[in-house]
């Protein structure tokens, strides 16, 4: 239990929508793996990149929310039917927009996000270059 729960708890006390749980048990595939380990690995990898729609910023792979469970069941079913992870993601993005994926696609909106690290490295090198003097063979090294 840590700060994130504290905040979740504080927000839950004030936030308006009341999240109640249904009386039905979770879907079988929400908490059970697919028989085929390769397909399960595919599904697992995809689930880690999908956002739980009703949680405080968790992926569906590690949320106890009912809806996250139903989304896991949906993902496993579709993967078991032979769909590709990319198709499943597309199906969900069609419905919920980019909000549902934690792996934002490269677009005009996300370009700064993906380009910033490169920009920072360039700017850093520029700054660092000023700190380096000309190579001077007369300088002797010193032990710490």
């Amino acid at each position: 239990m840590r700060l994130r729960h504290l905040i979740a708890a504080l927000l839950a006390m004030i936030a308006v929508p009341v999240l109640a749980d249904s009386a039905l048990p979770p879907a079988e595939l929400a908490y059970s793996q697919l028989k085929d380990p390769a397909k399960e690995a595919e599904a697992r990898k995809l689930m880690e990149t999908l956002r739980c729609l009703v949680c405080q910023g968790q992926s569906i792979a590690d949320s106890d929310a009912e809806m996250a469970g139903d989304m896991r069941a949906l993902v496993r079913e579709k993967i078991a039917e032979g769909q590709q992870p990319a198709e499943v993601r597309k199906w969900l993005v069609e419905r919920y927009g980019d909000y549902v994926t934690y792996d934002p696609p490269f677009s005009w909106l996300t370009a700064p996000l993906w380009l910033l690290p490169l920009l920072l490295i360039a700017a850093g090198l520029l700054i660092a270059r000023r700190s380096f003097g000309k190579s001077d063979p007369t300088i002797e090294g010193e032990e710490a």
Partner: peptide, 8 residues
């Protein structure tokens, strides 16, 4: 029962 229609 499994929110499948809701997700669709």
């Amino acid at each position: 029962p499994r929110s499948a229609a809701q997700l669709a």
